[in-house]
Design a binder for these strands. Sequence first.
DNA 1: CAAATATACATAATTTTCTTATGCATGTAA
DNA 2: TTACATGCATAAGAAAATTATGTATATTTG
Lengths: 112, 112
Amino acid sequence: MSNSKLYKGSLTTIILKLLTESDKMYGYEITQKVKELTKGELKITEGALYPALHKLEAEGLLDVEVKKVDNRLRKYYKLTENGTKETANKLEELASYIATMQALVNPKFNLE
Amino acid sequence: MSNSKLYKGSLTTIILKLLTESDKMYGYEITQKVKELTKGELKITEGALYPALHKLEAEGLLDVEVKKVDNRLRKYYKLTENGTKETANKLEELASYIATMQALVNPKFNLE
DNA sequence: CAAATATACATAATTTTCTTATGCATGTAA
DNA sequence: TTACATGCATAAGAAAATTATGTATATTTG
């Protein structure tokens, strides 16, 4: 997931946000979409992705639907109502994180 | 360190950056400075800070100098030459992380 | 004056989140 | 037929944090 440690903790936010745009996605699709959107900067590993998806499902933020396509299994995930709410929270947290870090790192950005 | 998980992995960057501005700082001073700069948004816990400082010292990025002030011990940390170089890397990584996340989360920001 | 709070360091146990490695299975390209 | 792509999964270990302590001195407050 990139050599930078900064991505730790942001996988959930990424997954949830992508699902607000695509309605439903399956795991492998998420890895490809992230690779594409970030021009290869960020590669989601399976060892990180699948446990994260299972956790989001267990927390009731995602619903899963299994489908067989081309004789291969796919698990489609979509946001629940709570998942949609939580996505909004996560995106606010991300905006807040960015603002805070810029205040720390760049004297030009002052927090209110 | 704030309820948001996004700060995971950014402590080292924060410490190094603050030291480029203040020449030398001690642990407690860092916690207060961060609290002040972020208007209380971010509170560095001791359990995170001290091990991080020790690690940076062990890696040769920080030098330490112990002083007794008002009958209390202070450990002043300052950047080594390598520490200064590594700080530049960390700040680049932060800028890159922010750009990548905005590309993922905000369709308006496209990566080159 | 006693108690709480602030200053200043430290570490140990646990949790969270990730990496790395591995496993299984099918389909397609070289 | 061998490698690579698609698609899921988990287990062992590492890294970085949280939470809970512990020690000690100085200052503020009721």
